[in-house]
């Protein structure tokens, strides 16, 4: 797996804003960012209202994804370049999601919106209309998506990588420090999980660290490269960032993202939960 296949630089992106067959897609939870200014020509995908089923806790189904991408004017043959705020969390989530439904040519803009803004590159409020397509999705590729039962089975067997902050991992907090604490589930982490916060994989401008640095970080944390890996966080977006690092940048073979993550696991009845640093 080459970095160039899965990442594009801001410089490349700016030079290819009008290249036929390249579609820039901004993915955010808070879509007001897009309205305030986005990469020229980029279409918007709303993480909450467009990628999630609005009744059940699950993704939109295959037909729903086909309908969404068709309406956005994205074709099967298009090269989709994803970017967003929050250090590309939601863009990485969308990357994983596009892969889940079998889109072939998808890449992340390294550094996302942050790097683009810090570089002072152009933003626009203009929204280009794209002609609708007839997009065809595949059945979900479940080799990259983990569900709760296999997560329980993975305890002490596979690598479990908890990418939340140390305070969320130890059970002091239920949500990141910039958010009000919410939801009545148990704090803690899945036994045998290692804690490698997603932020370890990123430079301060939001770009990914080098493969050499990344290999060292996960190796030092005790990730066994010969085993399968499941990454999780609170709702599955920060862990998409780490899933991208392990599978797409470092080329690990069997890496799944557990999108149920702590909001599911921490509410399950009867499963083991561990508190503290996990190193005692």
């Amino acid at each position: 797996m080459s970095r160039d296949n899965v990442l594009v630089s801001a410089e490349w992106a700016e030079q290819n804003l009008t290249t036929p067959g390249v579609v820039f897609v901004e993915v955010d939870e808070d879509t007001s960012a897009y309205e305030g200014g986005h990469i020229p020509g980029a279409v918007r995908v709303d993480w909450k209202t467009e990628l999630q089923d609005q009744v059940r806790r699950d993704f939109v189904d295959r037909a729903g994804f086909e309908k969404l991408l068709s309406a956005k004017g994205i074709a099967n043959s298009d090269r989709v370049v994803l970017y967003g705020g929050n250090n590309n969390w939601f863009a990485a989530y969308a990357y994983w999601y596009f892969k889940l439904y079998g889109h072939q040519d998808v890449q992340l803009l390294d550094g996302g919106r942050k790097k683009w803004e810090l570089d002072g590159r152009p933003l626009t409020k203009d929204v280009d209309e794209r002609e609708a397509t007839a997009y065809t999705a595949q059945e979900q590729d479940l080799s990259i998506r983990a569900f709760r039962d296999e997560v329980v089975d993975a305890i002490n067997t596979k690598n479990l990588v908890d990418v939340r902050s140390p305070d969320e991992f130890s059970g002091k907090l239920l949500a990141p420090a910039h958010l009000p604490q919410e939801q009545a589930q148990r704090p803690g982490h899945i036994p045998s999980a290692i804690n490698v916060p997603w932020s370890k994989a990123a430079n301060e401008d939001g770009t990914f660290r080098s493969n050499e640095e990344l290999t060292q970080i996960y190796g030092d944390a005790g990730l066994d490269g010969s085993k399968s890996t499941i990454a999780y966080c609170r709702i599955g977006e920060r862990s998409s960032h780490t899933w991208f690092v392990l599978r797409e940048l470092l080329g690990h073979g069997d890496v799944k993202n557990y999108d149920g993550s702590w909001t599911e696991y921490g509410s399950l009845v009867g499963v083991p939960v561990e508190l503290g640093t996990g190193k005692d």
């Binding site: 955010d28 939870e29 808070d30 993480w47 909450k48 999630q52 806790r57 705020g85 929050n86 969390w89 939601f90 949500a175 990141p176 910039h178 958010l179 009000p180 919410e182 966080c233 609170r234 709702i235 977006e237 920060r238 909001t263």
Partner: peptide
């Protein structure tokens, strides 16, 4: 389900923060 994105930054505290 609430996401992990940061809320709007304002000079005044939200009502639920003590």
């Amino acid at each position: 389900m609430t996401g992990c994105g940061a809320p709007a930054q304002t000079a005044t505290l939200p009502a639920n923060v003590d």
